[in-house]
């Protein structure tokens, strides 16, 4: 593309190894998603707990790849990493509390 350049900006040539790694991450995410589809349509609905645990496990793996590689958190300082990760404890706590509450409501109603 032709641009009028105000300053002579030095373009650094692409690091193919780095770019390859990014595409690999995308491939892993797609493969996991396909795997989730296979699980959804091969493992019967009677094995509900098994299905749900596989889905949750796969989701956490995908989240780790997105946050770690795409959002680059793995390569930031440890202090930043933990500043982001530790507060998510509150999410875990909310999950436990609400699921406990939900099953209590279910028992009271039915």
């Amino acid at each position: 593309m032709a641009h009028h350049q105000e300053t002579t900006v030095k373009v650094i040539p692409p690091d193919t190894a780095k770019i390859k790694k990014l595409w690999m991450t995308a491939l892993i995410l797609l493969v996991i998603t396909v795997f989730e589809f296979i699980v959804a349509f091969t493992i019967p609905h009677e094995y509900k707990d098994l299905r749900v645990w596989i889905f949750i496990g796969m989701t956490i793996v995908k989240a780790a790849y997105i946050v770690g590689e795409f959002m680059h958190l793995r390569y930031e300082t440890k202090f930043l990493l933990w500043s982001i990760l530790i507060p998510t404890i509150f999410i875990v706590w909310m999950l436990v509390a609400f699921i406990y509450e939900g099953s209590a409501i279910s028992e009271a109603r039915f």
């Binding site: 900006v9 650094i12 040539p13 770019i19 795409f70």
Partner: peptide
């Protein structure tokens, strides 16, 4: 599934834009 695929792909193109930015590669 198609929507998931589209969003993952646009995430890759975004991270490639970030990478190009580090190299000052405007195009």
């Amino acid at each position: 599934g198609i929507m998931t695929f589209i969003l993952i792909m646009s995430s890759v193109t975004m991270v490639l834009a970030v990478e190009a930015g580090h190299r000052m590669d405007r195009a």
